[in-house]
Structure formats: structure tokens, C-alpha cells
């Protein structure tokens, strides 16, 4: 989920045609291009992962989940995520279609899809510390401005300024590994410019083509002092999914 979130953000930045501020031998667009090159090239993906919720006292809750995603021809991403454990949430499924244009929640106890209003996307999803918006990667890619703030020995620091009516963040800061070209850390600043959330990639896998897959992602909600860690256990790219997979039809299917 976080993997897709990261890739999505990085991908949309590459597509931006906004201001390029050159403060270094490399431009911010070139950094984004290189990151895009390092990102796995796929249209569909399946992951099985553990979501570890860590509260203020450090107590952990582990939830296992399976997630499918597909990038459409219009570059919009659809995802379907289902909890596999613990038993109390088993079968709870979240479907988001086209970057969160439509979001559905399926709870086995009710046995019917519940549509989540677009304006509810910032609510927390199932106590995960992540909002429906975070889960859906609903960050519009129009008119985002980016700027290379700083270059250190080990990283590039890039500022992104989302714009539009429905943005949750005033700015997003990326800390990009200079050698491997992946974002080691992402900082999210709310509309009051306070740092509210961070995302860190703690572990990656580099394949024979130099493509980078994050294997351990840590999401910190600074306001609530909670952490959500996602550990990827299995990942497959370019799997075959039927054309109607990302629809309410799949939500009710007991086996995926």
C-alpha cells in the first residue's frame, strides 16, 4: 500500500510540467526521472504484507493483508485490499477505484458494499492510523510545484507543493537517496505547515535490473503519536487480473 503510495507520488511528479528550479548540477526533473527509472515497471501488482500498528506505549497489533493494484491507461491506480487476520477483521475489504474517485468498504457482518463519501476520505480507516485518502493514494497530480531544496552528501531534499481545492497537505518533503534514487523519507505538512506525518522506507530490495522495491515502510502520525509499519512478505508484478476485478463485484467474493 505504502509502496504504491510512494510510487504514485513519484510517478505523478515526473509528469509535472511546472517550475524547475536548478540549484545543482542535476535538476529536480532529472531526479524524478531517475527515480521513475528505478521504480519497478508494472501495471498490476499483488502483495501480501503485515500491517503493524504501534500505539503510544509501543504496544503492537499485527494485521495481515492482501492487496491488488492496477495502473490504468490514464495513469490512475485502483487498489483492492483485504484483511486476512486477525479474525476480528478478517474479510474486511477496501476498494478504491481510479485514485480514490470511488471508495467502497465491505464488512462481512453487513455483507454489502458501503460506499464512502468522497469528502470522508480523510477519516481514519479501521484504526490503522491511515486515512481512506492515504490508502487510496488520492493525491491529484495537477499543477504540483516542486523544488530542489538542498543537496547533502547522501541525499537530495525536494519540496512538493500540492495545489487544488481538495489537498490535505501544504507541502511534502522528500529525502531522496543520492546513490540509489529512492525516497528514504517523506514528510507531510498540513495546511498550517505543521509536520503531521512521515513515511520512511526502512528496507528495500534491488532486483537484477536495478529496480527498487520497498520491503519495510514505516508511517508515523506525529499528531497522534502512532506508527504503522508495513512489512511486505510477498510481492508479484504484472499478474493477470480480470478487467472487472476492481469493482464491487470482487468485494463480495469470499476468495480472491
Amino acid at each position: 500500500m505504502k509502496l504504491r503510495f510512494k510510487i504514485f507520488i513519484f510517478t505523478i511528479f515526473v509528469l509535472l510540467l511546472s517550475i524547475n528550479v536548478i540549484v545543482s548540477a542535476i535538476t529536480v526533473d532529472e531526479i524524478m526521472d531517475k527515480m521513475e527509472e528505478k521504480a519497478p515497471d508494472f501495471t498490476t501488482q499483488k502483495t501480501i504484507s503485515e500491517m503493524i500498528l504501534i500505539d503510544q506505549k509501543g504496544k503492537e497489533e499485527v494485521r495481515e493483508m492482501i492487496m491488488f493494484s492496477r495502473k490504468g491507461e490514464d495513469e490512475k491506480t485502483s487498489t483492492l485490499m483485504r484483511f486476512l487476520s486477525p479474525k476480528s477483521v478478517k474479510g474486511v475489504t477496501l476498494l478504491n477505484i481510479d485514485d480514490g474517485e470511488k471508495i467502497y468498504l465491505y464488512m462481512p457482518a453487513y455483507d454489502k458494499p458501503r460506499r464512502i463519501a468522497g469528502s470522508s476520505k480523510q477519516e481514519e480507516f479501521m484504526g490503522t492510523g491511515l486515512s481512506y485518502e492515504d490508502m487510496s493514494m488520492d493525491y491529484k497530480d495537477k499543477d504540483y510545484e516542486k523544488k530542489l531544496l538542498e543537496e547533502t552528501d547522501s541525499e537530495y531534499i525536494v519540496k512538493i507543493m500540492p495545489s487544488g481545492e481538495d489537498v490535505s497537505y501544504k507541502k511534502i518533503i522528500l529525502h531522496i537517496d543520492k546513490e540509489k534514487f529512492y525516497a528514504k523519507k517523506v514528510e507531510f505538512y498540513n495546511t498550517n505547515e505543521n509536520l503531521t506525518k512521515t513515511l520512511e522506507i526502512n528496507k528495500i530490495r534491488i532486483d537484477e535490473n536495478g529496480k527498487i522495491t520497498p520491503l519495510e515502510i514505516e508511517f508515523t502520525d506525529i499528531e497522534k503519536n502512532k506508527k504503522t509499519k508495513i512489512v511486505i512478505k510477498e510481492i508479484e508484478y504484472n499478474i493477470e487480473l480480470s478487467s472487472g476485478f476492481f469493482s464491487i463485484r470482487t468485494l463480495k467474493k469470499p476468495t480472491l
Binding site: R115, A117, S119
Partner: peptide
């Protein structure tokens, strides 16, 4: 679906 005029309501 969306509740017209009430942000955040379904």
C-alpha cells in the same frame, strides 16, 4: 454516496 452540502457525510 456523498451527502450534498455536508462535507464528510455519506
Amino acid at each position: 454516496g456523498d451527502f450534498p452540502g455536508i462535507e464528510g457525510a455519506t
